[in-house]
């Protein structure tokens, strides 16, 4: 029905507000890149700090680049419910995998201990893809796939390559690709939407 399709188009444009500027891509890419670099520098204790990256980019980027061009919105009740449902589901998946991982560790040479990095990559990919589903942004499915392939491939190649750590190189490479894609989206966004001068 046309009317339904049009309301769906309105919703699509609302989701676009959150993804069109590429800031979500850049944040995600920097978190993955930072994760790889911290492990490479043997500083895993600082991984928690990576959580600040999206907040910082969101606060600075939205305020100075996005709002003067496309304004700001407050999501309605249905959208808020969708966001909340997403975070609850994602948290449950995370807790479930953590439990399985901990149970697997106690079982010696189990599947979980043998392929822990691939499983971690799979969960991460699931989370990234869910973000794509939530935001109606197909490219996040590809990011999820890229991260999984980088992590699982790196883990598989670990024993055959000794010159460098293929897992870490895969993670860093995936992060760089996602940041680069985000920068392309941001550049396109800045070109498409000029600053709207409300005082002019």
């Amino acid at each position: 029905m046309n009317e339904k399709a049009n309301l769906q188009e309105i919703r699509r444009q609302v989701y676009l507000y959150y993804t069109e500027d590429g800031l979500a891509d850049i944040s995600l890419g920097l978190v993955i890149l930072g994760f790889g670099l911290l492990l490479l520098l043997d500083m895993p204790a600082f991984v928690g700090v990576l959580g600040l990256i999206p907040l910082l980019i969101w606060y600075l980027g939205k305020g100075s680049l996005v709002v003067p061009r496309v304004g700001s919105i407050q999501p309605g009740r249905a959208l808020k419910k969708r966001f909340l449902g997403f975070f609850i589901n994602l948290s449950l998946i995370g807790i479930g995998v953590l439990v399985l991982f901990l149970l697997g560790r106690g079982a010696g040479e189990s599947f979980f201990s043998m392929y822990s990095l691939s499983i971690f990559g799979f969960v991460l990919a699931l989370g990234i893809s869910s973000l794509g589903l939530l935001m109606n942004a197909i490219r996040f499915y590809f990011y999820g796939m890229l991260v999984f392939i980088a992590m699982a491939g790196g883990e598989l190649l670990m024993n055959s390559i000794s010159a460098f750590d293929p897992f870490l190189m895969g993670v860093i490479g995936a992060g760089m690709v996602i940041v680069a894609a985000g920068l392309v989206y941001l550049t396109r966004f800045l070109g498409k939407y000029p600053v709207i001068d409300l005082e002019g």
Partner: peptide
């Protein structure tokens, strides 16, 4: 009206751009 129906609120700039 359709935009405002799916949002709690939108600002003037958002509506101009969309």
């Amino acid at each position: 009206m359709a935009f405002l129906a799916v949002l709690d609120s939108a600002d003037f700039t958002f509506l101009v751009s969309r």
